[in-house]
């Protein structure tokens, strides 16, 4: 099982959304990390085959996805960013419809079992007969994931699947994806580090349309050794430090403030063990400042 992306470029008028992105993926969960505007959705839409790149190619098992056409869509599960879905449909009805759209040739009984199974996975079985218009944002998001899982895809693309979910639902969703990820390539785009920290086999970091880093979470964190510091400053100085350095965290204590500084210069602070959020901050500092 192999998905390869070769030198992808997507040029809009006056703006390059993707600039020479290349990578190859095998089975496992991959986190596509980047701030808003980094090109994550553009990349995922190109991989999903709904957007044409200006140049470059996406290959599934060494064959161009454009040539594979429906054979590629048959193995694909895609959850777009915040789809509205069909509000007049019931949840189960929507999944029956999606099964038909996905060309699943199942008997009625098999189909009902498949739908029940994915509804169980996303914990919506008890709401199967409710209209989608009555669903909360989180429930819709879960239903979107249910439809993506319906055809047991080999390639699962999730575009910011945790958007709009409360912490409990996010944890549940992470567990769901970890459960179903076996024998699949899962690409999960997000700008929330904790979504993918513990489950991603590798993290691909996208910034200004370029792939700036790709590694396992542990290796990325390891590369940050010696770049995260803890510095004690007075409460009055805290604000000034935030403008001079990248501050990952501020903890107020009785007499002072403890800053978590990310950067090559620790300004005399004590080196502390890094985590993935530090990695994010380190790589995307410019974007973060612009935002």
């Amino acid at each position: 099982m192999e998905l390869s992306v070769e030198n992808l470029v997507k040029q809009y008028s006056g703006h390059r959304a993707l600039d020479g992105v290349s990578f190859t993926l095998n089975e496992g969960v991959y986190g596509l990390l980047g701030p808003n505007g980094a090109g994550k959705t553009t990349l995922i839409n190109i991989i999903a085959g709904i957007l044409l790149p200006t140049s470059g190619a996406v290959n599934w098992e060494k064959a161009d996805i454009g040539n594979l056409d429906w054979r590629y869509r048959e193995i694909l599960g895609f959850q777009p960013q915040t789809p509205t879905l069909y509000k007049t449909f019931r949840a189960d009805e929507f999944l029956y419809y999606m099964a038909a759209v996905k060309g699943m040739n199942l008997s009625k009984k098999e189909l009902r079992m498949t739908v029940d199974k994915v509804l169980d996975i996303v914990n919506l079985r008890q709401d199967a007969h409710r209209k989608i218009r009555e669903f909360s944002g989180g429930m819709r998001q879960r239903l979107g994931i249910a439809q993506a899982l319906l055809n047991e895809p080999k390639l699962l693309l999730l575009d910011e699947p945790t958007a709009g979910l409360d912490p409990q639902e996010r944890i549940r969703l992470r567990n769901v994806i970890a459960t179903v990820a076996l024998n699949k390539i899962v690409i999960w785009t997000t700008h929330i580090v904790s979504d993918i920290e513990y489950m991603a086999k590798e993290i691909l970091m996208l910034k200004n349309g370029r792939l700036i880093a790709r590694d396992t979470p542990a290796a990325l964190v390891d590369k940050m050794q010696g770049k995260v510091f803890s510095l004690s400053v007075s409460p009055q100085e805290a604000a000034v430090w935030q403008t001079r350095t990248l501050v990952g965290n501020i903890r107020k204590r009785d007499a002072d403030v403890l800053l978590r500084i990310v950067g090559d210069n620790g300004f005399g602070g004590i080196t502390v063990p890094p985590n993935l959020e530090d990695v994010y901050l380190y790589y995307f500092q410019e974007i973060a400042e612009e935002e």
């Binding site: 429906w70 694909l76 789809p83 759209v101």
Partner: peptide
């Protein structure tokens, strides 16, 4: 307008048959 075309266009029968 509802963005559901994204679901259709990434499904096997989402183009011709739909």
């Amino acid at each position: 307008s509802s963005q559901t075309w994204l679901l259709l266009h990434t499904s096997k029968n989402g183009k011709g048959k739909t």
